[in-house]
């Protein structure tokens, strides 16, 4: 298990209390899970994706990640429409373990960027992890 100070938590992302991250890229955004989440889940063996075109509200479940032990839901950090899924994860879900930031899960078109204010900065996320 990684110690908190060993976690890779990039600045410039926004994090959720459920351990997803979102990165704004122009009028789109990519979404993945944090290094803490992948470390806690262990080997990810399956990533269940939504369909392109699906719409979700902020905090709504959009898919699941299956580790060896259990199935965990993933929640969308921002209200929006799925515009791309990371197809590479279908054959190689372990990529999420290898680099959870390079290997985003979905790309979305956010509906309301003001929702970002309700997400955690890296410092706030660290506070959450430190309990």
């Amino acid at each position: 298990m990684k110690e908190i100070n060993e976690l890779n938590l990039p600045d410039g992302l926004r994090y959720t209390r459920d351990h997803e991250w979102v990165k704004i890229m122009g009028d789109a955004a990519i979404v993945g899970i944090s290094d803490y989440a992948q470390d806690q889940l262990g080997d990810i063996v399956y990533v269940e994706m939504p369909e392109v075109g699906d719409e979700f509200k902020q905090g709504e479940e959009f898919g699941t990640l299956e580790s060896v032990k259990a199935v965990s839901e993933t929640y969308l950090p921002l209200t929006g429409e799925i515009i791309e899924i990371n197809e590479a994860l279908a054959d190689a879900p372990e990529l999420v373990n290898k680099d959870p930031y390079e290997n985003w899960i979905v790309r979305i078109r956010p509906a309301d960027l003001s929702e970002l204010d309700s997400l955690l900065t890296v410092d706030e996320y660290l506070d959450l992890l430190n309990g």
């Binding site: 990684k2 262990g42 080997d43």
Partner: peptide, 21 residues
């Protein structure tokens, strides 16, 4: 570097850095 969890009241390794797979 084991990920630990409680099993039958014992704090036990779930997996080591190599991973469960």
């Amino acid at each position: 570097g084991a990920n630990m969890a409680i099993f039958a009241s014992y704090d036990m390794p779930l997996w080591y850095p190599a991973g469960a797979r």
